[in-house]
């Protein structure tokens, strides 16, 4: 059996069991209680901030963590 993994902003990571979106953000150094202006999509669906501590990450999931940057 292959190690379960997920992808965050295109990079592969090893999946821990019962990992939530909040856990994932902490692991990436993005602290939800401090960071404003961040949004998360799990497999092309936006996960609202209020759901971060409940939404589970599964094997093969693709997670996008985005923020505002310079743009025209």
């Amino acid at each position: 059996m292959t190690t379960p993994r997920y992808f965050v902003n295109g990079e592969a990571r090893t999946l821990a069991s019962d990992m939530t979106v909040s856990d994932l953000l902490h692991a990436e150094g993005v602290h939800p209680e401090e960071v404003k202006g961040v949004a998360v999509a799990l497999n092309n669906t936006v996960i609202r901030r209020a759901e971060w501590s409940r939404a589970l990450v599964n094997d093969g999931d693709r997670v996008e963590i985005v923020t505002a940057q310079q743009g025209g």
């Binding site: 923020t67 505002a68 940057q69 025209g72």
Partner: peptide, 19 residues
């Protein structure tokens, strides 16, 4: 003011954000 939505740079989350 217009801004773009882009991936957070996970290799460096320390810098001053645009916001």
């Amino acid at each position: 003011l217009t801004v773009a939505i882009r991936r957070v740079n996970l290799s460096d989350t320390s810098g001053e954000s645009l916001l």
